[in-house]
């Protein structure tokens, strides 16, 4: 059985953490482009055109049924084709990060369209109507009334999506991306995998706390987005005997 030494764990840990920059890079890019695609898809789904709706749903269904690994490979080998080359060509010229970002933008496009739809539908129609009735323009109503509530609704889902993205993205090492997992594997390979278990421990120590941190972060975002709920608590306190003394006036 291998030796599991603290020294090796630290070695893998400190060696892989810098690669988090790569991870964040593709997460941010994929989220941005994915959300843009998702918004477009949502507009298509909610439009009056049956064709647009059908196409959008088709996209979402197909993407939903595709494993990340398969999609990664399809994009990796197939993207050069689209640009008029042979399948598998141009691999040396383009950074691997490009393929990864394209792949996950496709995924986020599908899932974000669903998230947007759910978030919009959860905001009661009366909110927008009220906004318009007091004279706000459509754009202003959206910005000040609908959007904040949408964001709050979507926060848990957005948080989940980011965490999922980080985990699924780990697969990118199969096409050579040096993100956290890829870097760890590279380091381990240099040692002929003699300390694989230490590497696993180090990786767990990177991913697990990161996930927990992100979960708390997004929960905090959600709370920050709903100051109206916090003020409600203060008003409720005011009504109790002791609260009344504190908040009188």
């Amino acid at each position: 059985m291998q030796k599991i030494t603290l020294e090796k764990i630290i070695y893998f840990f400190t060696g892989s953490v810098p690669a988090l920059g790569v991870t964040f890079a593709y997460v941010i890019v994929s989220m941005i482009f994915g959300t843009i695609i998702g918004t477009g898809l949502y507009r298509m789904k909610s439009s009056h055109s049956k064709v647009a709706g059908f196409l959008a749903n088709l996209y979402v269904t197909v993407v939903r049924c595709t494993p990340s690994l398969v999609m990664l490979f399809l994009v990796f080998y197939g993207l050069p084709l689209l640009v008029g080359g042979e399948a598998g060509a141009r691999m040396e010229e383009w950074p691997i990060l490009t393929f990864v970002c394209v792949t996950f933008s496709i995924f986020i496009g599908a899932s974000s369209s669903e998230i947007i739809r759910a978030a919009v539908e959860a905001v009661p129609a009366g909110q927008a109507e009220a906004g318009l009735s007091v004279g706000l323009s459509g754009m202003q109503t959206f910005r000040y009334v609908t959007l904040p509530q949408m964001l709050k609704n979507a926060m848990p889902n957005i948080g989940n999506t980011v965490i999922l993205l980080i985990k699924e993205g780990a697969l990118a090492y199969t096409i050579g991306l040096r993100d956290v997992l890829g870097q760890a594997y590279y380091l381990s390979g240099r040692e002929m995998n003699a300390y694989a278990v230490s590497m696993y421990i180090a990786l767990t120590l990177i991913y697990w706390p990161l996930t927990i941190l992100l979960e708390h972060l997004f929960a905090a975002f959600e709370r920050a987005l709903t100051p109206w709920e916090r003020k409600g608590k203060r008003a409720a306190l005011r009504r109790t005997a002791e609260g009344g003394a504190k908040y009188a006036g």
Binding site: M1, I163, I166, K167, E168, A170, L171, L181, A196, V197, Y200, L203, T204, Y207, W208, P209, L210, T211, I212
Partner: peptide
């Protein structure tokens, strides 16, 4: 549950695949 949710599946696969045989053997 937090551990499983917080680590990539591929990592779990590697741990299971490489570590379990040792554990079972001993």
């Amino acid at each position: 549950m937090s551990l499983i949710r917080g680590t990539p599946v591929i990592l779990q696969i590697y741990v299971i695949y490489n570590v379990t045989p040792y554990l079972l053997a001993s």
